[in-house]
Design a protein around this nucleic acid. Structure first.
Length: 423
RNA sequence: GGAGAAGUGGCUGAGUGGCCGAAAGCGCUUCUUUGCUAAAGAAGUGAACCUCAAAAGGGUUCCGCGGGUUCGAAUCCCGCCUUCUCCGCCA
């Protein structure tokens, strides 16, 4: 949620700022609900204050005396009145909160204005996507692919989108996870191994609930959700806490499997590893003060880029435009690797600054110079998601003999220069 | 899963219907003093929201969470959560 004071004091500024986002909000009705709510709260509090004052006088009277009994009669009416007004205030407040939560975060001024994904700006490109890849194939067309990543048996065992990784491919996935974690560690991120289920409070704090409820797998009996990303449990680590400012920025990384229902998003272009219900990812999360989050976003993006470079995969950085950044995002970069077999760019990381939007909702603050709590800023980025990186490795590093060359940076964990079968 | 006990402010811990937003101690901050990495004394020391142009001030709420009883609840009742102990089960 945004800062309510900003909305009250500069409604036109807010209106203009979110005009270019894809989420539509009626600012005027939010302001009206806010005014109505405040009137009701004041009324209710005055009634309660009057009751408490009268009550205090009454408490001094001898219990059971005639004066006492008379006073009790009057008090009953006051108590009922206060209760009524409090109920009205609560209703008005809930109506306001619901409307207020529909206001998206304000895009940073540096975000390019645009209506949708076609207007994202390519900020930079690394490597040579136009190079000749004479042996590249879509990864799902590599002859030995199904013997290493077994979708059919995954369907039998769990369902579509839950493949088995077998033998050297399982080891390659593990190598990638280790490599990503080690990169993060060397860049100063402290590793955490979080729960991979969260409760409704946590899912609400980071914004998965209520809007994206349909995207998560849920255990209704226990009220637990399988995480769609490690962002959820990791960010909630500090929910409802006040941090010391000298701790900031806090940098964490976490490997987890991620679970996404991806309801209604299946089609020809999501074959193979392009989109799965379960996948492995290393997530980077930062908590910063209010002044340095934009710089920290650049560092975060650079950290992820450096990791991609070591994998020798061409990629590009997209500056997401106002019409394509997410609801809680102030600024967002997407990193896409070029998969030479499919001749497609595949998103492997999204690096985002939520400014104070998510932290306000999650109650994450730090103490400022005067000791007063200030809402923190939160950021996160994938560093990286395994399956699409794996897809690009399989496609781009496919050799003349039909095997795939394992990038040098993974040797430490793989101890194997090639995978697959020679023709 | 069964039985029992407990959940109070940064920490320890009083408090069983009104004088409790909450004793006391510790910790922390500021000041005073003596002066050598310390002692003593004084004052202060949570959060959210409403009101106010702002500050000051005022008000409401918060004693695990949510309901209820009552003129009035940290204190009584109900549900839930968590922790601890014992038993059971188990990687």
């Amino acid at each position: 949620m945004i800062d309510i004071k900003l909305l009250r004091e500069q409604p036109d500024f807010v209106r203009a700022a979110i005009a270019n986002k894809k989420f539509k909000t009626d600012i005027d009705s939010v302001l009206e609900l806010d005014a109505a709510r405040r009137t009701k709260i004041t009324e209710a509090e005055q009634a309660r204050a009057a009751q408490k004052a009268a009550n205090k006088e009454m408490a001094a009277l001898p219990k059971g005396s005639p004066e006492f009994l008379t006073a009790v009669k009057g008090m009953k009416a006051m108590a009922n009145r206060a209760k009524e007004l409090e109920a009205e205030a609560k209703t008005a407040d809930e109506a306001f909160q619901e409307a207020f939560l529909s206001i998206p975060n304000l895009p940073d001024p540096s975000v390019p204005v645009g209506k949708g994904e076609d207007e994202n700006v390519v900020a930079s490109t690394w490597g040579d996507a136009d190079a000749d890849y004479p042996y590249a194939l879509p990864h799902f067309d590599i002859p030995w692919f199904e013997s290493r990543i077994d979708f059919a048996r995954g369907v039998k065992t769990a369902g579509a989108g839950f493949p088995f990784y077998v033998g050297e491919m399982a080891r390659l996935v593990r190598a990638l996870v280790n490599f990503f974690l080690e990169e993060a560690r060397l860049n100063g991120y402290e590793e955490v191994l979080p729960p991979i289920v969260v409760n409704a409070e946590s899912a609400t704090a980071t914004g998965q609930l209520p809007d994206k409820e349909g995207q998560m797998y849920v255990d209704e009996k226990e009220g637990l959700y399988l995480i769609p990303t490690a962002e959820v449990p990791v960010t909630n680590f500090y929910r409802d806490e006040i941090l010391d400012s000298d701790q900031l920025p806090i940098m964490r990384c976490a490997y987890t499997p991620c679970f996404r229902r991806e309801a209604g998003s299946w089609g020809a272009h999501v074959r193979g590893l392009n989109r799965l219900h379960q996948f492995d990812k290393v997530e980077l999360v930062k908590w910063t003060d209010a002044d340095s989050s934009m710089q920290e976003l650049e560092k975060l993006r650079e950290n992820v880029e450096a990791t991609l470079q070591k994998l020798e995969l061409p990629y590009r950085v997209l500056r997401m435009c106002t019409g394509d950044i997410g609801f809680p995002h102030a600024k967002q970069y997407d990193l896409e690797v070029f998969a030479a077999g499919q001749k497609r760019w595949l998103e492997v990381s999204s690096c985002s600054n939520f400014t104070d939007f998510q932290a306000r909702r999650a109650g994450i603050r730090y103490r400022g110079p005067d000791g007063k709590p200030i809402t923190a800023h939160t950021l996160n980025g994938s560093g990286l998601a395994v399956p699409r990186v794996l897809a690009a490795i399989l496609e781009n590093h496919l050799q003349a003999d039909g095997r795939v060359k394992v990038p040098a940076c993974l040797q430490h964990w793989m101890q194997q220069e090639y995978i697959g079968e020679a023709k």
